[in-house]
């Protein structure tokens, strides 16, 4: 199966423009970019996708071995880039996908021209000399929370939501479908997300990078954003007025403005 089908890839914008790839984080799907992506349609070739297991990706492609670490997701991103023959990509990653972008840029530097990291965190759990913001017990508590919130998840509805990219209307009326996923997949994605440690990879990023840090973000608190900025050589840190973890939804205008300012000054195409 092609990666484009598997990951429910949607290509739009200016066909001759510089590619800009939007990656959603843990929780929801590519709809997270619905207020941001259109702003780049006249200047960029936009590529949106769902991680396998999320949104309308092909859930049958979910492999518990492959996706036991972020590498599985990184591999998918690189496959999409290869299939669409993308180079000089601006990779925009939210939340855990910020780290997917970091790993992809380290593994295949020829593909990527710039990184935009929205609410990144290389490690969520506190460690000696490092404050991620979470204790190990918090992650267990999250797994329990997922379990009680997926009791209402109906496996009978799942086929209608997922694996039907050609029939988007099927999912439209299903409340909460943007953030629905198979409970076992959600459980593993949560573990992979919140128990990963990619601090050592940050210094290996060799392309222009923007770190977008919200105020009052409990998932990726400000010291974590500063840490990411300090570790990635030459990166730009923008502190936003937007609060919370999802400025792409709660403050799209501010997010777009910060991205455009970064892309127009900090990166040379090619």
């Amino acid at each position: 199966m092609s990666a484009v089908v598997r990951n429910n890839v949607a290509v739009g914008g200016l066909p001759t423009g510089r590619p800009i790839m939007f990656a959603h984080g843990f929780g929801c799907d590519q709809n997270m970019w619905r207020f941001v992506a259109p702003a780049f349609a006249s200047t960029h070739r936009s590529v949106l996708f769902d991680h396998v297991g999320a949104g309308r990706s092909d859930v049958t492609a979910y492999d518990f071995t492959k996706y036991a670490s972020l590498d599985g997701y990184v591999g998918d991103v690189l496959e999409i880039c290869a299939e669409l023959d993308l180079t000089d990509v601006v990779f925009v990653g939210h939340s855990v996908s910020a780290m997917v972008g970091v790993l992809a840029a380290v593994r295949a530097p020829d593909r990527f021209g710039a990184l935009v990291l929205v609410g990144p965190s290389p490690r969520y759990v506190d460690d000696e000399g490092y404050t991620g913001g979470f204790a190990r017990e918090d992650v267990d508590d999250l797994l329990a929370s997922l379990e009680s919130n997926y009791l209402g998840w109906s496996s009978a509805l799942a086929p209608a939501i997922m694996g039907n990219p050609e029939r988007p209307e099927l999912g439209e009326e299903l409340t909460n479908s943007f953030c629905r996923t198979d409970p076992d997949i959600a459980h593993q994605f949560a573990e992979v997300t919140f128990l990963s440690d990619n601090r050592a990879d940050l210094a290996r990023v060799g392309i222009p990078t923007l770190v977008l840090q919200c105020s009052d973000d409990i998932i990726a608190p400000e010291p974590v954003g500063r840490y990411v900025h300090e570790q990635i050589p030459g990166s730009v840190l923008t502190l936003m007025r937007a609060r919370g973890h999802c400025p792409n939804l709660s403050a799209p205008a501010e997010t777009i403005a910060a991205m455009q300012a970064f892309l127009s000054t900090a990166t040379a195409t090619g």
Binding site: G25, F26, G27, C28, M32, S95, F134, A135, E137, D138, V139, D140, D141, L142, L143, A144, S145, L146, N149, N176, F178, C179, F194, D217, I218, I219, G244, H245, C246, L249, S250
Partner: peptide, 14 residues
């Protein structure tokens, strides 16, 4: 604590 993460990653965007 766990619900707080769920709140930020699922509820708020939804």
């Amino acid at each position: 604590a766990g619900d707080r993460i769920f709140h930020e990653t699922h509820y708020a965007p939804l």
